[in-house]
């Protein structure tokens, strides 16, 4: 069972992010939770494409290569990381504007001040 430890790490990070989204009341902590969810999805993709003893899929000065890690999950994870960076920049900008408008970061306070 210890061989499947990376899958367990994916599950733990996923639930940490879900807990932060559901129970925290600070908007910054909710943003951290969303980033944790993205990190768990990326880690899951990378873990699925691993082969034991495989090297990185780059041929420059590779030496004696027996097997290589699958390249397609790595390419798609690269895409996902850049999109996650763009969305988190937009998310933090919106949080900054909310703080300027309401003067607080508490979700309950913002809901109470509606209107």
């Amino acid at each position: 069972m210890t061989g499947n430890l990376p899958f367990l790490a994916v599950g733990i990070i996923f639930f940490m992010g879900m807990y932060a989204i559901l129970f925290e009341r600070n908007l910054i902590k909710i943003a951290i939770g969303i980033t944790l969810l993205e990190a768990s999805a990326n880690l899951f993709l990378i873990v699925l494409g691993y082969r034991t003893g495989g090297s990185i899929p780059v041929f420059t000065l590779a030496g004696e290569v027996r097997s290589m890690v699958l390249p397609t999950p790595q390419a798609l994870t690269l895409t996902a990381i850049v999109i996650g960076l763009a969305t988190s920049a937009l998310l933090l900008s919106l949080i900054m504007l909310l703080y300027r408008h309401y003067g607080t970061l508490d979700v309950r306070e913002i809901r109470r001040l509606r209107g």
Partner: peptide
């Protein structure tokens, strides 16, 4: 769901990736 996925590090059957490599 994970009980049907191949174990960590085992050689998965991936013809597309082998073609790329």
């Amino acid at each position: 769901a994970l009980s049907r996925v191949h174990p960590f590090g085992e050689k998965a059957r991936a013809p597309m990736d082998d073609y790329y490599l």
